[in-house]
Each structure stands twice: as structure tokens, then as C-alpha cells.
Design a protein around this nucleic acid. Structure first.
Lengths: 217, 217
DNA sequence: AATATTTGTGAACACGTGTTGACTGAAAAT
DNA sequence: ATTTTCAGTCAACACGTGTTCACAAATATT
């Protein structure tokens, strides 16, 4: 072809390197160790690139990590927002949100393996960034719940508490699901059923919630 | 023979190195990085000991890790069992279990910082070991709940599901609590109140639970 | 067509890593 | 009192690490 200078085979990398580095990192995370204990050289080697090429795209490893984190949540946020804007009433929206969330996680398995391992094992700034994303989901869910007719006079604080209970549970089950083999279809389905049951259970409790005294109806 | 040899009892009078290694590891975890990304030399340096001394006590780092893990849960299991054996009825036992758990975590902060970071970021065997401990709590809680009068005819599967919801929530809040500063008394109290509220909320839901169809009363 | 700017290469550095082996003093066992 | 076992040190190794610098090829700009 037109573009082949022999010498020592070193051509087809042009431009693709940045993405190759990100892919390599996720690949290593999925099969080896958490991102925070990956080495720069390890990543470049998997990407088929010389170590120094890394610096052309990221100042250091933690910058790569934050980019990966952003990539993990950017389109998820958008999808969840679309679900919310359908203005489905009450529990239907919850159900819809959960389904889109789980299928998204499933289609981006390596990304969330990365996130799961960094949530508590990563650097301070990484942990903070992830928890900020999670808190965002909690707040949005709380806003949705505020429109539930039977929750209309529950304090904002209690709404936040309920929403965080739901989100924490979903996160925990997501992490458990990620521990399963990728092709364990049965296990994954089981996990999703479990998640739905748990959220339903929580909503039974929510429906019974009255005042801040915590006394049931 | 011997004037003071108590059968096969205590040997290490001067050998305090083993404990020093464990303390050093926990210290580093609390202030730096997850255990899984600590180096052997780092630990021995902090312990004030030469690197090769490590091998007199542990074959490798992962052995140290498993020892630390056992130390974290051994006495906790015992305490929780004692609470259970008081045979307190219904919700009182739950409340008691939660209180002893949280105060125990608080008194062993570094141990559970270690556990928290390894739960999803550690090696495969480490993760498995921790999740086994957690599942144990779930099973015991499910057994306790089975004796609740209003849950007497709930399927074992659903009991497991409810118990795992409670435990997962407590674990999540514990991890969040561990992210706070050690001397943030207010934050810690707040966290505990939040935890109690969430568990109470779940129990409202549990009380409403009927059949596997999931239809409320 | 000539020049400038990206983008990847290769060699080199100073250092931290796990693990080995031989050695030593102190305690335990005889 | 003598021997054996334990628990620590010290030196050395082969290797992986992050980062630097000068250089060359591919692309963009003129």
C-alpha cells in the first residue's frame, strides 16, 4: 500500500494510542488487579506501545484513571436522565431506572469493574470522585420520590435517607454481580431478581413511613 | 528438666516482631494505600526490622493479609454470638447487634479500613474470604428473623434476601463511616442514626411482606 | 514543496522490589 | 555445659519501576 515504510515495523499506531492505553488499562483491571496498583509500564506494554509514549496523552497514571472514571459515568448519567424525563409516575420510573442501570453496567462490565475496585481501594481523589457520582444519583432519586403522593410530606432529610438506602443496595448488588463470571447468565438474572425484590421491600417500608419518630402507620 | 517450663506454652518472650509487622501493615493501610498494594519492604521498614526478618513469620504478604483478616473478624464473631445468645426477642436483638457491631468497628478502625479496602480491591482469595464472613452474618440474621412471629411463614429464600439487604446496608454505611475523620464525632453519630433509620425502614417493609408474589398486605 | 508540529521510539538513569544464602547471637533442649 | 533451634542481621542478585532526553517518522501548516 501507499503508506508502508519498511525499516523496523513501527507504523500502524498513529492516533489510536490514547484509546489503546485506556483499553489496555481496563483489560488489565478486569483480569488482574485494581487500577491503582497497575504500573505505567504494564499498561503501555499491554497497549503495544513504548513506555514513554504514555506521556504524550496523560501526565501520569492518575490522570488516566480520572479519564476512565469520566468515561464510565458520562453516558450513564445521560441515559438515566432520559429515563427520568419520561415522567413516568411513581414506581414505574424506579423500575425503569433500575433496568437501564443494570443493562448499562452489563454492557460496560470492565468499566464498572474498574469503578468497583476503586470505590474504596483507590486514591483519595478517586474515591471522592466516585462517591460524588453516587451522591448525584441519590439526590436525583430523592427528587423523584418527593413527587410520590404518599411521600409528599416526608422531610427532605428522610427522602435523602430512603434514596441512599436504595442506591446503596443497588450498588452493593452490582458489585456482587461483577464478581460473577461474565457468562454466568443464570447468576446475573438471579442477581437482578434479588435486586428488584429488595427495592420492592424497601418501598413497602417507605409506604409505611410516617413521621420522623419512625412510628409505622 | 525445667524449673519453669509450662508444657508447650509461651515461647516468644523477645520475639515481638510478628506483632510489629501486623501493626505496621495496618498503620500503612490506614494512612497510605490498600494492603494489596503494600510492599514487603515497606512493611518491614515501618516495623523497624530488616526485610528478611519477614520470612521468619510469614511465607509472603498474602499470608500476612489473611492473618490480619482473621484477627479482624475473630473476636467480632464471638461478640455477635454472645448478643444472639441473649435471646432478646425480635427487633431488640437487631438493635443490640447493630450497636455492638458499630462500636466494635469503631474500636478497631484500622482493621476495618483494611477490610473495607480489600473487599473489592484485594486478591481473589482475599475477596472470597471477606465475603464468606459477610455471608455468615447474613445467614445468622436470617435465622434470627425466622423466629419473628410475623415472618414465620416466609420462605427461607426471602428471609435470606431480607437479611442480605440489612447486612449490605450496614456494610455500606460502615464503609462510608470509615471515610470520615477518626475524630469526627458528630459525623459518626450522624452515620449511626442514619443506619438505624434505614434498618427500621427495612423492617417496616419486612412487616408488610407477604407471599413470594411480593404483593403488600 | 518546504516547514513545523505532533506522536511514537530507544537508550539510560537512579531507585524500589522479592528472594537467596551465609552468618550470628540468644534462648531451649539435651 | 553443650548442643540444637530460633529469630534476627547483612550483602547481593536480577528485575520492574517512573522519568529524562535526544531523535525520527507521520501528519499539519504554510
Amino acid at each position: 500500500m501507499s503508506r508502508e515504510t519498511p525499516a523496523r515495523g513501527r507504523r500502524p499506531k498513529r492516533g489510536r494510542t490514547r484509546q489503546a492505553l485506556m483499553d489496555a488499562a481496563l483489560d488489565l483491571v478486569a483480569r488482574k488487579a485494581p487500577f491503582s496498583s497497575l504500573s505505567l509500564r504494564e499498561v503501555t506494554k499491554r497497549a503495544g506501545v513504548v513506555p514513554t509514549a504514555f506521556y504524550r496523552h496523560f501526565p501520569d497514571m492518575s490522570a488516566l484513571g480520572l479519564t476512565l472514571l469520566d468515561e464510565s459515568f458520562r453516558t450513564l448519567r445521560q441515559m438515566m436522565r432520559e429515563v427520568r424525563q419520561q415522567e413516568l409516575p411513581n414506581e414505574r420510573m424506579i423500575r425503569g431506572s433500575m433496568e437501564t442501570f443494570f443493562t448499562y453496567v452489563r454492557n460496560n462490565r470492565t468499566h464498572f469493574l474498574f469503578v468497583s475496585k476503586e470505590l474504596y481501594g483507590g486514591s483519595a481523589t478517586m474515591r471522592q470522585a466516585i462517591r460524588r457520582e453516587i451522591r448525584l444519583f441519590v439526590s436525583e432519586l430523592a427528587m423523584d420520590m418527593a413527587r410520590f403522593p404518599f411521600l409528599v410530606q416526608v422531610s427532605a432529610e428522610d427522602l435523602q435517607m430512603m434514596a441512599s438506602l436504595v442506591v446503596n443496595s443497588v450498588v452493593a448488588l452490582t458489585q456482587e454481580m461483577l464478581e460473577l463470571d461474565e457468562d454466568d447468565e443464570a447468576g446475573q438474572r438471579e442477581m437482578l431478581i434479588l435486586a428488584e425484590k429488595q427495592v420492592r421491600l424497601i418501598y413497602f417500608g417507605v409506604a409505611q413511613w410516617r413521621s420522623e419518630t419512625g412510628a409505622p402507620a
